Amino acid sequence: MDRRTLLRATVLGAGAVALPFTSWSAAYAAAQPGAGPYGPLRSADAHGIKLPAGFTSSVVARSGHRVAGTGYKWHDAPDGGATFPDGDGWIYASNSEVPPPAGRGGASMIRFDADGRVTGAKRILAGTTSNCAGGGTPWDTWLSCEEIDRGRVFETFPKGGPAIARPAMGRFKHEAAAADPDRKVVYLTEDEPDGRFYRFVPDRWPDLSAGTLQVFCAGDGSSGAFTWEKVPDPGGAPARTRHQVRAAKPFNGGEGCYYAGGTVWFTTKGDGRIWEVDLGAGRFRLAYDDNLVKPGPAPLTGVDNLTGSSSGDLYVAEDNGSMDICVVTPSGRVSRFLTVTGQEKSELCGVAFNPKGDRLYFSSQRGRSGLITDGITYCVRGPFRT
């Protein structure tokens, strides 16, 4: 039984469905399956990927193999990822979710020129464990998060420099991070069946070495007002951070996290939900619930990593599910953007657009074999909406 099935068995999801990427007052119409913005998927290509017309895929890197044009062997179990501008080109950073024994995870980067050709690759974090998701920052660092009990956040420097542990951001089973430059905070998800949603408030933005860890507090429902309360002991020992504040709201298996325009979205894989937090209005609600899609079956299951495009579309990768990346549009339509075939023992992760928005990177963490040594990182090109 996979991780998501174990978590999902602990709860029966219930709630409403709402539109992402809309103003709070407009977000009450239900998001439902519909025709995608790019049309139906074609037959699988040479890489086993079903894509809409006009889109093509390529393999960027394979675990244990040298990244083309470099001497660097790509890490095992590629997971969360992000891109950063780099001169006329860009950098893609990726985590390595290798489980214990300790010290076998970390993160790597690949550098591309203006035409998308690989010009370099290297390790940017080593000696860590189960680096699952994470998040990029506006100052072009990658926050790599350990998904283990009392895990840490490491700030890494894809453009050069040694990684730095950031214990002030809390010691818990970290998943994803999303920087909010407007409020000068970083949001954090926790991958536990009773995980919490946090924010870290640095003493001096953007220095993450010191600050206050706060936890999201709200009632038992799926929508309403919320507040933030300080976590007394971010170190999480002996009491775990999620158990220190009585009013903290539990979320079933926190996964991906994404911030844009005054709203933060995060996924919970245990109940198949996307949550939407309107930070200006001080309100939260469901953006998606795979139990409530009609008619079924839901096109999006196994919600995991997510990112957004410049058009306002939300792209969500599946952990298991049917190995899809789905798109949720501002008009409230949920559809499959792509499907990876023949890799049912894997999961999709690391979704990230390059700075121009004409390439989407993602990984199949365990490829066709289902082994962590068989990960594949892909790039999809095509006429993405802007």
Rank of each mutant, 00 (worst) to 15 (best):
F154E: 00
A165L: 02
T128F: 01
A126Q: 11
V153Q: 04
D149P: 07
F157P: 05
T141I: 12
T129W: 12
T141K: 13
G136I: 07
L125R: 03
F154S: 02
G127N: 07
S130C: 10
R152E: 06
T156K: 00
A163Y: 03
T129H: 14
F154Y: 09
R152H: 12
T128H: 03
G161E: 03
A163M: 05
R152I: 07
E155V: 07
K159Y: 01
G151S: 07
R150N: 05
A126L: 08
I124D: 01
E146C: 05
V153T: 06
A126D: 11
C145F: 10
E147D: 15
K159N: 05
W139T: 09
A133N: 14
E146D: 10
T128R: 02
A163Q: 05
A163N: 02
L143N: 05
C145S: 13
G127S: 08
P162C: 00
G127V: 00
T156D: 00
R150E: 04
A133S: 15
W142C: 04
G135P: 08
I164A: 12
T129D: 13
G151Q: 01
P162H: 01
C145L: 11
I124K: 04
G136V: 08
G127L: 05
E147M: 13
A126Y: 12
V153I: 12
R152W: 08
R150Y: 06
E146A: 04
A133E: 14
F157H: 15
G135R: 05
A126W: 09
L143C: 04
I164D: 06
G135K: 02
T137F: 10
I148L: 08
G136A: 15
A165H: 01
G151Y: 00
F157C: 09
W139I: 10
S130E: 08
T129Q: 14
A163R: 04
A163F: 04
N131S: 07
E146W: 03
